[in-house]
Design a protein around this nucleic acid. Structure first.
Lengths: 231, 231
DNA sequence: ACCTGAACACCGTTCAAGT
DNA sequence: ACCTGAACACCGTTCAAGT
């Protein structure tokens, strides 16, 4: 800006070389900070060293940006899945990878729980799940319904965990302590099961629950495949 | 306000008889309008015929109000469950009722997907699910984990559907048409499963998916109970 | 062609002032 | 004791103006 450059393609004007790619990467950097930094257009402008509204030259709105960012995170999920696994382990790896990436970029995952990116990495995830249910022995409507069961469930699961991560610390503390506070004070006559299982309820871990949810999906596919084979 | 009243306990001053109950009911009325009316404090003030900030005399913040409102909607869910069902049908009725109420008050359900109300109706729902898994034959850690699997899954499911209902119509239209547009245009070489199942994927209904998800939960409980009984 | 910055129409919440 | 209303610190987005 102050002194002329001999290479006109790359001037000194910092912040003017905004690209969709650079915006997506800045978004990922902000999202990775979790609850420490809200994922807002203004924050994105700061991160890019540009005016916040400059983003609107490259994406129609925040939603379209989010879809692109989300599809990039799906790429990270795919990269985390090893080759040569049986279909059950492929789904387990997909679930574990989805959760890991969701907890890495909670702001992205929490807002994508009911969405489709309709972009290339999502196509690959869909193909992966369809391949798994096909290998399990499902086809046609069965394959489609069970794919949607797995896909929607995984999005909902990891979105739920991600959203939880973004709550105010005191909100989270209140929810977290409920099993050792409110639920320990219920009337034993009216709530015998809660009373009897109070200790176990307080000690259940997120990982135990997640694993139970994932195994339920796999079991459902196996069971449907067995029914179809039998008929 | 203009003329004196002989019953001092009930003056003409409309809007001054604000109670937690009245605020919760106004909240439910707004939430029931779905995407037509955002659930904001300002809108709540309008509905009550009072200044928006008057709500803060009765609830610490919007989150605490939301917890109370959500617990009221759980009451509606409980009222919809008939007596005398086997545990499987009790869980099916709970799932169906939760979905119906979530779609009736989407703004409440979508924000509660990762929360606990820690209030009386939630205790009753927890007791109901614990009763079901106990009747199925689970106890201790198994009962606790499978309760959480069911509870968290239901919250995530119905929250996902509710959130979808609140999106801008054009956002929803874009997501909805993806199976008949973007997914129909994928490369047949690279995505053979998507190509083969394109028709079926486009025709899957929300209800088919929801039913598959609910049955997966029931099957998982049955399977665990069988394993425990066998051991 | 792209970036800037004021501006608009919103949010939840606080607080001094009223009654 | 409760309600009011101005005000604060935020949002996403638009648009005329710059370069």
């Amino acid at each position: 800006m102050s002194k002329p450059s001999t290479t006109p393609a790359r001037t000194k004007r910092v912040g003017s070389q905004l690209t969709p790619e650079a915006i997506i990467e800045a978004s990922l950097r902000i999202a990775a900070r979790g609850s420490a930094d809200a994922f807002t257009v203004r924050r994105l402008g700061e991160e890019l060293g540009a005016d916040p509204t400059a983003v609107y030259r490259h994406f129609r709105d925040k939603d379209e940006l989010l879809l692109s960012v989300a599809d990039r995170t799906l790429g990270e999920v795919l990269d985390s899945i090893p080759e040569g696994l049986c279909w059950q382990d492929r789904l387990r790896a997909l679930a574990a990878g989805s959760l890991a990436v969701a907890l890495k970029y909670p702001a992205v995952s929490s807002t994508m729980a009911s969405r489709t990116t309709r972009r290339s990495n999502e196509f690959r995830v869909v193909e992966l799940i369809l391949g798994a249910v096909t290998e399990a022995g499902l086809d046609g409507v069965d394959a489609a319904v069970h794919y949607r069961m797995v896909g929607d469930s995984l999005l909902a699961y990891v979105g739920q965990r991600a959203a939880y991560l973004l709550f105010d610390p005191d909100v989270r503390a209140g929810d977290e302590s409920s099993w050792t506070r409110e639920y320990r004070l219920v009337d034993a006559e009216g709530f015998p099961h809660i009373t009897r299982l109070g200790q176990e309820l307080a000690e259940v871990t997120h990982d135990q629950i997640f694993q139970a949810r994932v195994e339920a999906l796999i079991t459902a596919i196996e069971q449907r495949a067995r029914a179809v084979r039998g008929a």
